[in-house]
Design a protein around this nucleic acid. Structure first.
Lengths: 342, 342
DNA sequence: AAAAATAATGTGCGCGCGTTCATTATTTCA
DNA sequence: TGAAATAATGAACGCGCGCACATTATTTTT
């Protein structure tokens, strides 16, 4: 019984006498032998880990945001199914080049990048990764002009439908609360909003930048509840000219509702509001928040699946034919935050 | 320039001519050399990973629960600070013995176990881990009789104070909605509840098991919102004899409120309710939910810190003197779900 | 200036596995 | 029954690093 035989038994390769197989297994149990995963990784030159790069989010506990937690759940599910482990990499504020490291150090075979931002340095980083042939996938972020693997959702369409919904309800003065502009999907939402407003004749046909909007209709937060709450004071003086608000996520919508309530403005009575994400919180606010549902969980699954598929074969012809960008549908979930009776 | 010198430069060990150091660094850059983390792990026989064992939770996306997401955030923070990486291990329904594997396979140097349950097989597993000298720490679960490292919170005290708060408000008929009994902290909450009720003379002095409670005061869910909602129908017939409810977590409290609302019972008007966890959701319900705050984030940090400290030296005398169980304080956060005016 | 002490670098081995190739046992076919 | 084909196993090497020890440069001391 040589060590090669043992290796073959545990990896189930090559022809093998059943009797030998059993003898090895039995001896392994008797000796309490367990293959050393590190040595395996070393010999195979493959770690068996999927890396997940998490952005640095100041103040907030990152797992506690609906978006990240759902995406991670989806990734986790897929990783489990593929027999991989999931290695979390927390980005630290200063460093830029940290994702290259986890690849070069071979600690992961592939990786999913969350919360990437469209800055020149990050684009450059990602390009280096691509040139190095490292399989990675962005979630919820599009880098225009690149052919990075990306899984995102149709935020433009989702926003368009949300605003159309408000318009169809008869509202005209609809304000938009944007999130941080460094994420491509913030721009998507803005575009959806503006298209709907243009189509309704509420904006000039050539309006496309935030600057083209009347100031009382455009607000900017950073996706945190606090930023939504702060927006209340900026919005307050204009409230007589605002009938409805479309907020770029539920957290900001909730913060805004809380903030405006302090000025005596009650959502669903004094103004209509639509959120985005369809998080759990949207179900329990007062009134329950109409919101745009995004299949974050599925996005995580898909991203993990697609990126892990590229690990094994790494077949180049296959990779080239495969579409590099997936965009999932969003859906408006109507609740009671918009039903002002007039 | 031998390879040993390179190793010394990258590990910053031994005396070293500054000039050589720079030459090595420069050459490394020129050759685009990066140390291979797997080979390092292999040679050092240390992975640099902290394992986190996640329970299998059917149906629910695990990261989306406040408890897990906060604990994970805390662990993540500490792991980052210690220069470790975080390896997530999802438990699969069938297998029992999976945590031993991640240790034996050497993929992690230490590990934090979430959602452990007090079953004979799991106790046995954990004992094996301890015998093997693997550093691990349980969070929010106490195994009585063992000296496992544990970080939990004073759920008994928290529950006691919550119920006392209701009693002080004048409520007498206070129902208890328990979570899954296989977690020690479910029992903790029950004990806190019963002690408060006994002290108020509302239960016999020898009442200690759920069976000793009047049936209309005891309900059992599984910490999910759905289970809270289902409880509503069981509670409904007894509502005339229930003034207040203490629920074992916010999710169940919220589900219960939603369920009871369908019977026309409005929380904060027709009955008082206190939740547990002080999750984000408690802030946005109608009415905002009074709840018991638990420092989950800090618990995660502490567990990671304590367990990683044991990796390096592994000093046995040190380990023996060190307390094996930490219990953090909880705090009642009063909101508006209990202010029935009479 | 030689000896001793110390600093700086090089040599060689082993960590535990997968893998290739050589070797031996077993079957098939003429 | 012997040769050829095939199945089953063993022997040896290398993955890339850390580390113990040997060796060589540089100081310090006498």
């Amino acid at each position: 019984m040589s060590e090669a035989t043992v290796s073959r038994v545990f990896n189930d390769v090559g022809p093998m006498k059943e009797q030998t197989r059993l003898r090895v297994l039995q001896a392994a149990k008797a000796l309490n032998y367990h293959p050393n995963a590190i040595a395996q990784s070393f010999a195979r030159r493959r770690s068996g880990n999927l890396g997940v790069v998490l952005p640095y989010v100041p103040k907030v506990h990152i797992f506690s945001t609906y978006y990240f937690s759902e995406v991670l759940s989806g990734i986790g599910e897929q990783v489990k199914a593929s027999g991989y482990d999931m290695l979390l990499k927390f980005r630290v504020p200063g460093e830029e080049s940290d994702h290259s490291d986890i690849f070069r150090s071979q600690k992961v075979d592939a990786c999913v990048i969350l919360g990437a931002t469209d800055t020149p340095s990050e684009r450059a980083e990602l390009k280096k990764l691509e040139d190095g042939g490292f399989p990675f996938c962005l979630i919820n972020q599009h880098m225009s002009g690149e052919r990075f693997h990306e899984v995102d959702a149709d935020h433009e369409g989702g926003s368009y439908r949300a605003v159309r919904y408000l318009l169809d309800l008869g509202y005209r003065d609809i304000a938009f609360l944007s999130g941080s502009p460094e994420f491509s999907n913030s721009g998507d939402r803005l575009r959806g909003y503006m298209q709907a407003m243009r189509e309704a004749g509420l904006l000039p046909a050539d309006a496309k930048a935030p600057g083209d909007l009347p100031v009382h209709l455009y607000y900017e937060g950073n996706y945190s509840r606090t930023s939504g709450m702060k927006t209340a004071s900026a919005m307050h003086p204009h409230l007589n000219r605002i009938e409805a608000v479309f907020a770029s996520n539920d957290r900001m919508a909730i913060g805004l509702m809380q903030g405006l309530r302090e000025y005596g403005h009650v959502p669903g009575r004094d103004y209509a509001i639509v959120g985005y994400d369809d998080s759990e919180a949207a179900r329990v606010t007062d009134p329950p928040l109409t919101s745009v549902a995004v299949p974050f969980y599925e996005m995580g699954q898909l991203a993990a699946e697609r990126v892990l598929r590229r690990v094994g074969g790494g077949n180049e012809t296959d990779g080239a034919s495969e579409s590099f960008r997936l965009r999932l549908d969003t859906k408006l979930v109507v609740r009671q935050s918009c039903c002002i009776l007039r």
